[in-house]
Amino acid sequence: MPELELMIMIALMVAILVPTAAMLVWFERRLLGFFQQRYGPNRVGYFGILQSLADLIKILFKHDWIPPFADRPVFVLAPLIGAMAILMSFAVVPMAPRLVVSDSNIGLLFFLAMTSMAVYSVVLAGWASNNKYAVLGGMRAAAQTISYEVFMGVSLLGVVILSGSFRLSDIVLAQQDMWFVFPQFIGFVVFMIAGVAESHRLPFDLPEAETELTAGFHTEYSGIKFALFFLGEYLGMMLISMMITTLFLGGWMGPWLPPFVWFVLKTMSLICFFILLRAALPRPRFDQLLEFGWKWMLPLALLNLVGTAVVKLWGDF
């Protein structure tokens, strides 16, 4: 019964991903604490490991409040869209041979489509909140995502050319001789930057820039709806790390250890790197961010695409 198997697989994924994202919150806070010469949450359970659980309990018991001036249905829907879109993307990520919900032949396109969906969450939340800070945050998110999406897609085409497939497991297998991070280094860097921007993390956290827009698009959100945004952000960070692993770092492949362990190790190192980025970098201004995207990243990605295509054609002759 393939349907049942699929259902179990999906349930398993959700059951693993959501708590992992919650644990990631704790992990990030501890790691930031380590980077910043302080402790971070260390009181609930060993090393504060139950902090996320405590936070979750608190958040569940919070008054589920919708501001009277908000656009109710959209206000409720917005955080759901975000978390759902990101969760859906995980369906195409192969974590080990055959450990994937749907090894679709358009996996990469599906991932790009879903991350584009996620921006609706932010824009709608900003709009439905009927709050000026939220609107500014939503506007920033829209502009940022539109600009960064363009070269995010372009940066991946080099990988597609080299592997000749949109299927993620094919892409992993194509890296048997060499990880794509070497021939596609520019693509790797550009995609990584775009990935951080997509998940709205420092230095690209402009839609929620705390010091400027209080909390940006989620200013009016509290309780479980706020938690969904948070979940979405951390799932997004996981997703981007997994995608980089899959596309550029040889996915599950590696000697001695089982494939899944390799996959987790690579993903975790990337997550640590993202957290380090947050601890290390300040935030550029909005126009500087867009300028950087259009004037540097996009030409770089295009150049990479053309270069890869030329090399590939040359080799085929």
């Binding site: 910043q36 420092l202 230095p203 010091t211 970098l281 300040p282 935030r283």
Partner: peptide, 15 residues
């Protein structure tokens, strides 16, 4: 530094 979005320096300086 924090107002510009750099989170860490303030913690070092608090030490």
């Amino acid at each position: 530094a924090q107002d510009i979005g750099s989170l860490s320096p303030i913690f070092y300086m608090f030490v």
